[in-house]
């Protein structure tokens, strides 16, 4: 076989192989995404066109002979042939010009396209697709499957949004932020009682340290962990905390946090909506996330200590 074709095949195969690696390296591959598909089509045609065209001309170097009418002038000994334009080139040039004009004037008139319109459509399409998918799954799932599904979804949100501060293992990266493996536990309530809490930006402001201590604090934590039921800590709670959080623990209509949901998804959604400028540091708001995403990441985090 001609060495040339061999080189062509090697280069072509190398580039197509590279493209294959890139596509398969991504979760979901082409993902039915038109942009992915067009890009890969572009990449593949780039390789194929270049290889074919270059082979064509190199073949001419190997087999053709230089001929034609020489122009009279030379420059420093360089002469020029008066050859006609290569037909393929000239025709393609003409075609692209015609195509360009068609595109401007008739195909996609310059004022007819809006990238924001395109964006709005993309959002609708994707949102509907995922919503439909979600609802279908949910209607077929058992309760435990549903919970697990939310937790998995939450983990996926966690990794893109929260990991950067709370770490891959949610340990809070050496005290940079809250260790979420121990959040929403008996211990973290005791901590809030002993050290106070601040930064959720409630009308009531910050919660000072030391409203209770010792055995009381431990008991109150048990009481809250039991969703404000049972004997233990009940009285101590009413004395120390109800003034702000209400006897029902619901936070007096939004004046302070709802303790019934402490340790659960609902509380986390609240943190995400408010942000927290606390003792450890400063957590931004996450109003960018959808309600479903907030709920899911809440489910994931409240599952961490279980």
């Amino acid at each position: 076989m001609n060495k040339l074709y061999l080189w062509g095949i090697i280069m072509g195969a190398l580039m197509l192989g590279a493209t294959y690696i890139a596509v398969t390296g991504t979760k979901g591959g082409l993902n039915d995404d038109i942009i992915n598909i067009l890009t890969i089509a572009g990449a593949v045609s780039l390789v194929i066109i270049t290889v074919f065209v270059v082979i064509k001309y190199v073949r001419q170097m190997q087999t053709d002979t230089a001929d034609g009418v020489l122009a009279r002038e030379t420059w420093d000994g360089i002469a020029e042939y008066e050859n006609e334009l290569p037909v393929g080139w000239a025709v393609t040039f003409l075609l692209t010009i015609v195509w360009g004009m068609w595109y401007f004037i008739a195909g996609y008139p310059l004022n007819a396209y809006s990238q924001i319109g395109e964006y709005n459509e993309e959002v609708v399409t994707l949102t509907t697709k995922f919503e439909k998918d979600f609802n279908e799954k949910m209607s077929n799932f058992s309760e435990t499957e549903k919970t697990q599904y939310m937790i998995d979804m939450g983990e996926s949100v966690y990794i893109t949004e929260c990991m950067i501060c709370h770490g891959l293992t949610a340990d809070g990266i050496d005290g940079l932020s809250t260790d979420l493996n121990n959040w929403g536990t008996h211990a973290s309530i005791v901590d809030a009682i002993v050290n106070g809490s601040k930064g959720l930006n409630y009308p009531m402001g910050d919660m000072a340290a030391g409203f209770a201590s010792g055995q009381d604090a431990t008991d109150i934590a048990v009481y809250i962990m039991n969703d404000l039921s049972g004997e233990t800590g009940s009285i101590a709670y009413d004395n120390a905390c109800a003034g702000c959080h209400g006897t029902d623990g619901k936070g007096l209509d939004g004046s302070s946090p709802d303790l019934l949901v402490y340790g659960e998804s609902g509380f986390i959604v609240d943190v995400l909506n408010r942000g927290k400028k606390g003792f450890i540091g400063d957590m931004p708001k996450f109003d960018r996330l959808s309600d479903k995403q907030k709920e899911a990441v809440g489910a994931y985090i409240s599952s961490l200590n279980k």
Binding site: A22, V23, G25, T26, K27, G28, N31, D33, I35, N36, T39, L126, T127, K129, F130, E131, D133, F134, D152, M153, S156, V157, I159, T160, E161, M163, I164, Q293, A296
Partner: peptide, 15 residues
């Protein structure tokens, strides 16, 4: 492609 990818839940697939 990784920047664009959404996972099965409709979230971004990659941090």
């Amino acid at each position: 492609m990784m920047w664009r990818a959404h996972d099965e839940f409709g979230n971004l697939a990659y941090s």
